[in-house]
Write a protein that binds this DNA or RNA. Structure first.
Lengths: 127, 127
DNA sequence: TCCTAATATAAGTTGCAACTTATATTAGGA
DNA sequence: TCCTAATATAAGTTGCAACTTATATTAGGA
């Protein structure tokens, strides 16, 4: 089952869905439209991606009339978190690793956002 | 590039490699032998998986004579960590989510290990 | 009851990732 | 220099995941 989670996260379209849902719940139609605009894929394709996410426990669904309202399921992401936790080094000094390997990328992203205040290291700090 | 990381983690063989390397550095031959035993795949297949992990920044290599010694690269895992950090809910109450959805699985694993002391929530706690 | 809207499922196609076998590369030892 | 060990790369095959179009399902409104 943790396997399903990783398979699900392996697809960029599905990661995009999760990012979208992280902004708030969305009916399937809105998700499908967003994916059509960004990736040029059809409604059935979107529906199939949602199924994979559902079966991996990464999203929740709720019927609302004829609509299906999707949301992020934190439990699925926690499975990934658990797996990563085996690799003690990655968290012992997360910022060290980030500074070394991602400093450039992060700076670029920060500039792209319009020099918003740095929001690194929230919970996972204080290790 | 973060994309490459997720693609790399999407394969169970490669996740196994990382788990193996997490126990300590290993030459390619030892890795290949372990994968042959567990998955029945050939030496070239192992070498190709190592290449994917290398290009994703998830492992490091070091030449030692004619051997190539591999190890976990924490930086790559940090990329995953960074992506997960967007999903605030998943970490705000990680244990809640785990308790709800994974309690059974964890108990089983604990028993399988021989009732070793519970090692949950090390760094990522105290959020 | 019929129509439409919203979504999921069925069935078929196709590109590519994960494998294979064969071979190139590199280093060390006799 | 030649042989072997250790590993990577080349080239080819193949199963499957991600798509497609067509259609079923479900709920609500006229």
């Amino acid at each position: 089952m943790s396997v399903e989670v990783f398979d699900a996260l392996g697809d960029p379209v599905r990661r995009r869905i999760l990012e979208l849902l992280n902004e708030g719940e969305r009916p399937a139609g809105v998700i499908a439209e967003a994916l059509r605009a960004q990736f040029g894929i059809s409604q059935p394709a979107a529906s199939q991606h949602l199924r994979v996410l559902r079966e991996a426990g990464l999203v929740t669904v709720r019927a609302e009339g004829t609509r299906r309202v999707y949301g992020v399921d934190a439990a699925g992401l926690a499975v990934v978190q658990e797996w990563l936790a085996r690799f003690a080094d990655a968290f012992a000094q997360p910022l060290d690793a980030l500074e070394t390997e991602l400093a450039r990328g992060r700076r670029e992203r920060r500039l792209a956002r319009g020099a918003a205040p740095d929001r690194r290291g929230r919970d996972r700090r204080a290790g």
